[in-house]
Simulated assay, not measured.
Amino acid sequence: MPRKHKTLPRLFIDQPLATGDQLKLEKAPSNYLVNVLRLNEGDEVILFNGQDGAFRATLVNGSKKAAQLEVAEQTSAQTPPSQIDYIFAPIKTARLDFMVQKATEMGVNALRPVQTQHTQMSRINYDRMRANAVEAAEQCEILNVPTVHEAQTLEKLIANWAETDPERKLIFADEETDVTDAAKALKPLGQSKVAVLIGPEGGFSEAERELLRAQSFCVPISLGPRILRADTAAIVALTLVQSNIGDLR
């Protein structure tokens, strides 16, 4: 995507956007614009909300607690949502931050944590996950911020799949699969909706692997001959998917 207005800071706001709007910001984004970015009245910023595209706006009131912006023209139309969801077993905080940021940069539509038998992290800071996704979108000029879902068990995810998302294929990284050519396994999926599943640091249990293999909607792939950490595996798997059936083709 060509960069537009790359010298201007970008700010995600959870408000509707349209040319001519006068927006009053809450304390946190006001503080960010005035104290962190040190914008003055008359300075410009790019706004986006994940729904209406991107707009150029001017700071008209530099209050640190309730800054006001005047919305000018639209600079980018809203991009369509990705067909790729990312499902993962939560990992330690710093590496989870990294993984969420990279998954956002790779263009996923949703972040869906699951609890597996070997998952080490049971508590998830959803606000932090959301903030990391927003930050990555702001820095990389992404207009779609992934939806953050609450965690569920892998068994419940599988049991409800046909009811909640019957058209979506589930691609899972299986270190014991006989399917060594990931590209060959992925290409038949074409333009299908997909989800990429990365297991915990200790891998899936044998029972979980058998459960996944038994599902007609599941597609096992290998990520190569090396043992990868979960955050690295996420990047490799999403790259394989995007380069074979996604927008990196």
Rank of each mutant, 00 (worst) to 15 (best):
31 N>W: 08
243 S>T: 15
89 A>H: 02
29 P>Q: 10
86 Y>T: 02
210 E>M: 10
143 L>G: 09
140 C>A: 13
99 M>A: 05
140 C>N: 15
133 A>S: 12
44 E>F: 09
53 G>C: 05
62 G>P: 06
26 E>D: 15
201 E>S: 14
8 L>C: 08
2 P>D: 09
4 K>S: 14
99 M>C: 02
86 Y>A: 03
27 K>F: 13
176 E>R: 05
18 A>D: 15
164 T>W: 06
105 E>N: 01
190 G>F: 09
204 F>L: 11
197 L>E: 02
15 Q>G: 07
99 M>L: 14
41 E>W: 07
143 L>M: 09
125 N>G: 08
12 F>E: 13
66 A>V: 08
156 K>Y: 04
105 E>P: 01
143 L>Q: 12
119 T>W: 04
241 V>D: 05
25 L>F: 07
217 F>I: 02
165 D>M: 15
229 R>S: 06
210 E>A: 14
32 Y>P: 06
178 D>Y: 07
44 E>D: 14
237 A>T: 09
52 D>W: 02
243 S>V: 13
22 Q>V: 12
116 T>E: 05
48 F>S: 05
21 D>G: 10
95 R>I: 01
173 A>P: 00
236 V>E: 07
110 A>H: 01
7 T>M: 11
187 K>H: 11
47 L>A: 09
225 P>Q: 04
28 A>N: 13
147 T>G: 01
158 I>R: 01
171 I>Y: 00
201 E>K: 14
239 T>N: 14
